[in-house]
Structures are given as C-alpha cells and as structure tokens.
Amino acid sequence: MEPYLLVGLLTLVFPLFSPCTCLLDNVGDADLEAIRYRLQDEKEKRLLLENDVETMMLKLAELERLCKKDRNKTEVTPSSQCPFGFVSRANHCYVYVLLEATWIEAQMYCRVFGGSLVSIETPEEWTIIRSYLESVKGQDNIWIDSTDILKEGIWHWTKGNGDQRMIGKAGEGIWASDQPNKYGSREDCGTLMKVSGQYFGNDDFCSNKFHFICEAQ
C-alpha cells in the first residue's frame, strides 16, 4: 500500500475511536459499580419471578393430585354431575383442599377446577358442611366465600350477586356469637373456625394461609 494511502486511512480511523476513549475516560469506578449493582438487581428480580412462577405451577400440580386422591377415597354415584374430584352431598358438590393458600389464592384454585369457595346459604347446607368437615377431619380454620372487602362491615357471598343469606348479620346464621369482630380492623375474609369441636363463621386476615372448601353446582 502506498504510504500516502496508509496515512489517509489512519486519519479517518483514529477519530472513530477517540469518542469511545473519551466516554470510557469519563466513566469512574463509582459509575461502573452502580451499573454492576443495577444489573445484579435486575438479575435477582428475574430469578425471583421465575421462582414464583415455578412455585405456582407446583401448587397447581399438588392441588390436582389432592383432588384425584380425594376422589379415589370417596364413592361417587355414576349419576353424579359433580366436576372431577368433587364429592356429591345432597345435590351439592364439594371438595376439601389440603393445600394451604391465602383467601385470594383459594378462590383462584377453586375456579381453575370449575367451582368457587363454598357459600353456605341455608341451614340445611350448614348442617351438610359441618358433617362433611367432620368426615374429612378439617383443620381449625378453613376459607369460605364470604368477605366484606368491597364495603366494610357488609358481609356477603361473592357469587349470587352479593347474597347475604346466613352471613348478613353478626352473631347470626353461621357466625359465632362474638363474630365478626374485625380484630386489628383488617379481617376482611371469612373462615369456618373450630370452637370446642364445632365449626362457626369467623373473620380473618385475607393473607393468612388455610385449607379451603370448593363448591361446584
């Protein structure tokens, strides 16, 4: 290559690298450390999200296993129209789920399998639910469908356009005599709580994790 051509090329190339050199010169150690920290923080967030998704999939798989186990242990007549895994009781379909979940998670799980958290709208159904819980040896607190999240102090079932049967007045219906008591002013979700061997309605923190009963029509 002719010398004058080489000189011309070098004259063109060196200005292209000089801005990069200036930029790197202007980035201090503190700036590089901040960039590394942000990258690490984003990586940790992504890993947490992946773990959350994996945990949810494991919970759904466990719920499906428990539903299958419950069906295998319970005789269901061929004429039953209950969804898979549910037990027929006096023209109602129920399944007691051993998985511990928050109230919102329990609602989601029930809907995945064709139902919702149980609502108890008649004295007859209240007797059925109590008997069913005795047969499955339910834990001391169990999520049901009732809530007053939308309007403080107004309890209702989420299905049926906000029906208040058996849940509308404190101390009546399924409620224990001293419930709902709004302990800590944040108990907005309903459970069945075992008191002296019997279940009664109770309000609790929606973020607590309990077993639950799903109901399907």
Rank of each mutant, 00 (worst) to 15 (best):
L66P: 00
G171D: 06
L133E: 00
S80R: 05
R111N: 15
N26W: 08
I149Y: 07
I174H: 00
V7C: 03
Q40I: 05
A170H: 06
Q217L: 08
D31Q: 14
F84D: 08
E187R: 15
G201N: 00
E152W: 11
F205W: 15
E54K: 13
E125S: 07
N51V: 08
G168V: 04
C82K: 00
E134A: 13
W175E: 01
E2A: 07
D203W: 07
V76M: 09
C67K: 11
I142P: 00
N141M: 11
P180V: 06
M1I: 05
E134K: 12
L98E: 11
A170N: 12
W126K: 10
D25C: 08
E2V: 03
L133D: 00
E125R: 13
D52T: 09
K169Y: 09
L49P: 03
D29Y: 05
Q179S: 15
R38L: 12
I213M: 13
G115F: 02
Q139A: 13
L117E: 01
F17C: 12
V118T: 14
L23E: 08
A34R: 12
E187N: 15
F210N: 12
Q40A: 14
L133C: 04
C93R: 01
C189H: 00
D29E: 10
D148I: 03
W155K: 06
L99G: 03
R186S: 15
R36Y: 08
K69S: 11
C206W: 02
W103S: 11
N208Q: 14
R130D: 13
